[in-house]
């Protein structure tokens, strides 16, 4: 049931991450599978609360109590990270897989200089001496477009603007030359004018190093420009995935269609922006059958009874829907 890539760098299989709270078990990620090949960019898309970030943190083994990975596999070059010990995970974090957070205002430690925070990565993951580490930090800062890099190693995060801070965060994420970057809404907290700069920078950095990336976002417009593949999450499940172009042009799942329709289109000025009716159901108490059926214009009796499984729609596209859209359908 998976899109098999020849050499999957990361293969996630039936990942289930639950949060045990007082008011019930939240199945934030409930059976998610996908593959990322070397040098690929995968977009992980969905509404807030869809479990996107939890997937990212699960991969790094950074799920804190009351959360817990209940099952599945996360295979990095065939090595299962779910069963790996904390010591092994620490070697992987920052070195093999690194992460860029949403808000650059809060992801840097306000009391440490930029240099200290960069140096920490190299001290953890390299044998370089102090001078070589410093040189590497300066080069990395320059490559993310920060001028007078050597001077700025001694500066504190509050002396940088939001966009500059995100550049620093990206520099930190890239320092140990990881093979996979997980970027969790990397531009959501930034000015619109800065957003495209940062996205361009990230794409450059990834391409220059042959690294792969998981781009977590709610913004289909961003992901359609960046990603090779897209995986759409809804209520902790994959509802559709496929090559970016196919998925954007001929979405098979009504939810994907809804997301695409709610992108503002400057060329075609609708009097009102289309939106998906209703809200995400209470994830602690999901309805039987399809999770999307209450908001779905195509829902029929079967949708209330049976949960749809992910099925191939064409050569590159999979969707979990009993009544998928066909190319040419106007939902």
């Amino acid at each position: 049931m998976t899109v098999q890539t020849q050499h999957a760098l990361l293969a996630v299989r039936d990942l289930r991450t639950y949060f045990h709270t007082f008011s019930g078990t939240v199945k934030a990620v409930n059976g998610v599978s996908f593959d990322i090949g070397e040098g690929e960019i995968m977009g992980l898309v969905g509404e807030s609360g869809g479990g996107k970030s939890v997937v990212g943190f699960s991969i790094l083994g950074l799920i804190d109590s009351p959360g817990q990975i209940m099952g599945g596999q996360i295979l990095l070059n065939g090595e299962d990270l779910v069963t790996a010990g904390e010591d092994r995970l620490r070697q992987i974090r920052g070195r093999e897989i690194s992460m860029v957070f949403q808000d650059p205002m809060t992801s840097l430690n306000p009391l440490h200089t930029v240099g200290q925070q960069m140096d920490e990565v190299l001290r953890l993951h390299s044998d370089l001496d102090a001078a070589a580490r410093r040189k590497a930090c300066v080069e990395m800062l320059e490559s993310v477009g920060i001028s007078r890099a050597a001077d700025r190693l001694g500066a504190y995060p509050h002396q940088f603007s939001g966009g500059m801070r995100q550049r620093v965060v990206i520099a930190i994420a890239m320092l140990a030359k990881p093979r996979l970057i997980i970027a969790d809404e990397p531009t959501t907290a930034l000015d619109v004018t800065i957003q495209s700069q940062i996205l361009k920078l990230m794409r450059q950095q990834i391409a220059a190093r042959g690294a792969s990336m998981i781009l977590i976002t709610h913004d289909l417009a961003v992901v359609s420009e960046m990603a090779d593949h897209i995986t759409v999450l809804y209520c902790g499940n994959v509802v559709e995935r496929g090559r970016t172009r196919d998925l954007i042009e001929t979405p098979a799942h009504p939810y994907t269609r809804g997301l695409i329709d709610s992108i503002p289109d400057p060329a075609n000025r609708h009097p009102r922006l289309k939106q998906i009716p209703g809200t995400v159901p209470d994830i602690r108490n999901l309805p039987k059958g399809c999770n999307f059926r209450d908001r779905c214009p195509r829902a029929q009796a079967l949708c209330a009874v049976e949960e749809p499984q992910l099925r191939p729609q064409n050569a590159s596209q999979w969707a979990a829907c009993h009544y998928p859209l066909q190319p040419g359908d106007l939902a």
Binding site: I92, R95, F101, D103, T106, S107, L108, N109, L124, H125
Partner: peptide, 13 residues
């Protein structure tokens, strides 16, 4: 705070 999680994501003990 995010920077605590970010530090862990770097691989710090």
């Amino acid at each position: 705070q995010d920077y605590m999680k970010f530090a862990r994501a770097k691989g710090a003990t």
